[in-house]
């Protein structure tokens, strides 16, 4: 079994093309998950009981069903409903919906990890609920959620590979085409794995840097 390095170099442009799409959908999915997670956690901690229940049910729903099935549901469902959306969009929606649920739980754990004493110290100074949240709780919680958010981001990056099944031309899609065309499975999947490691490593490095910056400020 030979391993053809030249084959990899020759096909590097194909991988790079896929990489751009992978990075794009990853970045968008992470951003939307962070935002959507915020909406969900606000509902989850709201004073309105119905809203709380709805958010809790939503979190349970997305956490207990595969993102792939959600993608199929949205992609094929939208086509049958007469409003076909692209595989890219369907993937993005499913990834954000699922991971927004996880992110909401991360936010919640971060908020609830701030001790009641800190809250009371704020109240004793005359802060109202909202002020206690924004001055005392949130800045401390943000520091604590960075590591789990970083992990969730890696989950998202890896799950973007699933949109290849909806014919979105990201890295995994190109890799499959290339294998079918050239039969150079070893070279292709070695390179593909390397590219994913590259993306996830850079991402977690950036997150660690962010965490470190905030630590130093503390």
């Amino acid at each position: 079994m030979s391993f053809d390095v030249n084959f990899i170099l020759r096909n590097l442009p194909v991988f790079l093309e896929g990489l751009t799409v992978t990075v794009q959908i990853s970045a968008l999915a992470i951003a939307f998950s962070l935002i959507w997670g915020l909406v969900v956690v606000i509902a989850r901690l709201s004073r309105v009981k119905a809203l709380r229940g709805l958010a809790a049910a939503y979190v349970e729903l997305v956490r207990n069903t595969p993102v792939l099935v959600q993608m199929y549901f949205i992609f094929f469902g939208s086509a049958v409903a007469g409003y076909p959306i692209s595989g890219f969009m369907a993937g993005l929606i499913a990834l954000s919906a699922q991971n927004g649920g996880y992110v909401a739980e991360i936010y919640r754990a971060g908020i609830q990890s701030i001790s009641q004493r800190q809250v009371e110290a704020g109240m004793a100074l005359g802060m109202q609920g909202r002020q206690v949240f924004s001055i005392v709780v949130l800045p401390q919680a943000i520091r604590r959620v960075i590591p789990p958010i970083s992990n969730q981001g890696i989950v998202i990056i890896k799950d973007t590979a699933l949109v290849s099944t909806l014919s979105v031309a990201e890295m995994t899609y190109h890799a499959r085409l290339l294998t079918d065309r050239t039969a150079a499975a070893y070279e292709v999947f070695f390179t593909l794995a390397l590219f994913y490691l590259l993306v996830t490593t850079v991402f977690s490095g950036v997150m660690r840097l962010l965490e470190w910056r905030l630590r130093v400020a503390q």
Binding site: R117, Q118, E120, A121, G122, M123, A124, L125, G126, M127, Q128, G129, Q131, I135, V136, P139, Q140, R143, A217, Q218
Partner: peptide, 24 residues
Amino acid sequence: PEREVARMRAQLGMVFQSFNLFPH
């Protein structure tokens, strides 16, 4: 209402056994 309670609390200083400084 909370706003009034907060206003009254602002007139009282409180020091806790466990300090409770804001660590950030």
